[in-house]
């Protein structure tokens, strides 16, 4: 159920504070474009941000920077190891 692949936002509609507007984003995942809901996303995304989508709803939006930071931490973890363990 928890597809963890972030999808890139290409279009945003609606007003984050007004639930009577249709809060919808268009996202692109592997070249496929589709609409998802923004009713419960933590931060209102900008075009170019990434969102984690669950059952049609974005639940988290993240900027590429955050994702890269996370990756750097993983690398650090790997680099702190003695060389003989890396082979």
């Amino acid at each position: 159920m928890c597809l963890a692949i972030p999808m890139r936002v290409t279009k945003v509609e609606g007003n984050p504070d007004d639930f009577t507007t249709n809060q919808i984003a268009t996202v692109d995942a592997d070249g496929i474009s589709r609409e998802i809901r923004l009713d419960v996303v933590d931060h209102w995304p900008a075009i170019g941000d990434y969102v984690i989508v669950h059952a049609g709803f974005a639940i988290h939006s993240l900027v590429e920077e955050e994702a890269l930071k996370n990756l750097a931490l993983l690398r650090e973890l790997a680099e702190n190891m003695p060389a003989e363990l890396l082979s």
Binding site: I5, A67, L71, M81
Partner: peptide
Amino acid sequence: MKYLDEYRDSSLAKSLVAELQ
């Protein structure tokens, strides 16, 4: 998405397995 591949990078995984050990 480009950075996603890196989370699946097998050499990174190998080092992490060693670290887990």
